[in-house]
Design a binder for these strands. Structure first.
Lengths: 231, 231
DNA sequence: TAGATTGTTAATCGATTAACAATC
DNA sequence: TAGATTGTTAATCGATTAACAATC
């Protein structure tokens, strides 16, 4: 064969990754990071599949969709996986973000230092409650909402982490959108209404909990699923 | 037709709700709660569908699968929806749980008071780090791991909320499982290995973030999806 | 009654899996 | 070369949507 890797690069762009595929790829990224730390420089689809409890074919298909090519008999180069997924998952891009709402969850998020790994830099933390203004959370001084507008403009922030109560969520969202926020990581258990060009990711903890409890009760009553994931 | 509603009740049990369906139903539950608070006593599939950005038919199918019957021209009784979803989502069951790991996230979870709504009662909060032991978080005194075993036995706890670092996650899980924990709400970004009869729900924030950023970048580059959700 | 809304069956669509060819 | 592992095409499966009948 006469090509090395240059001409198949285009495919990367067109692949419409499904939500499920994206989740699996994020997991693959984590696995690959781990493998790298352990000194391995390749991973194969079987290992990844086992860790994700899915079919190896599916992993290979996801890899292909993400524009990652492996080598027969070898697997995927960890370096390739990390580099390409960096791009596909958009992890390599640097983005500024603000946190709005400093209840317990907002405070935890403000103090969480794992975001930087994903290219997110928190440049401001806001709360409407004056009692909270001035507190220091994870190196950030909590600012009043009045300051939010100018900060968004100065840093050209387009990403907001929303951790306000349900009652304020929609209103705050509308305000943020009108100030040019284009992506919202929503921790309030409401379905936000936003224009089509604004991206929302809901992190609905109550929903996650409900699902856990449901499955727990199901297993308790009916026993574990007949078909074990991948023993 | 000659039946009222008694004989179609059985169906409730067999319906294998998919993960996606479960998520939608959890959202329906929230919507119905809201409607109830606003004084409405019915909701129809169109309203719900709009709020969830899905097809009305899908809502009706989910309702049917959950064993909820509506009335033509009226919709679903809010009371019916809440009562039946209480059961289906297992919200009405009361369960004791422990929180393991009291970093920022664990602390936020310990202080979060929304769990009780879902029938979960936190009966103990633990950390391996002695520096954290004795702190009070949301009304709970942080206990050392040594106390964990007996507390699990005394309360017959089967649900654990895991908020330890990645490095400790699998080990802690193995320990908890050996002590008879049967459901784990996992906040560490690792895929835990557990026996088939143990239920795990992953709340992988990094994964959520990766997805948000990916979509944000996509929209920024290619513009919003051609097919608007449900304008 | 006429109209609105549910409930269900059939059609479509997309995602996963199986089979196998390609290739290092 | 023989064997392992990727990559791809075809088959299956499940979930969503469309069409329409049932019913309040």
């Amino acid at each position: 064969m006469d090509n090395t890797s240059t001409d198949r690069r285009q495919r990367t762009e067109e692949g419409e990754l499904s939500k499920a595929a994206l989740e699996r790829l994020a997991l693959c990224y984590q696995m690959a990071t781990r493998k790298g730390e352990e000194g391995q420089d390749t991973v194969n689809s079987a290992e990844l599949a086992q860790a994700l409890s899915v079919d190896p074919t599916l992993v290979r298909k996801d890899m292909a969709a993400a524009g990652i090519t492996g080598r027969p008999k070898v697997g995927y180069l960890v370096a390739d996986v990390l580099k390409q997924l960096d791009t596909v998952l958009g992890l390599s891009s640097r983005n500024d973000a603000i946190i709005v709402g400093c209840g317990h969850l907002g405070a935890a998020l403000a103090a969480y230092n794992g975001f930087s790994m994903y290219g997110l830099k928190v440049v401001g933390v806001f709360d409407a409650d004056f009692a909270k203004v001035g507190q220091v959370l994870g190196g950030h001084v909590v600012l009043p909402m009045e300051k939010c507008r100018s900060l968004i403009e100065i840093f050209r922030v387009e990403i907001a982490i929303l951790a306000v109560p349900v009652s304020a969520a929609q209103e705050t969202t509308d305000w943020l959108v009108s100030r040019n926020i284009r992506a919202i990581w929503n921790f309030a258990p409401v379905q936000l209404r936003v224009p089509h060009d604004v991206v929302v990711r809901n992190e609905n903890l109550a929903q996650g909990l409900a699902q856990l409890i449901h499955n727990y009760n199901r297993v308790k009553t009916h026993g574990p699923r007949t078909k074990p994931p991948h023993a």
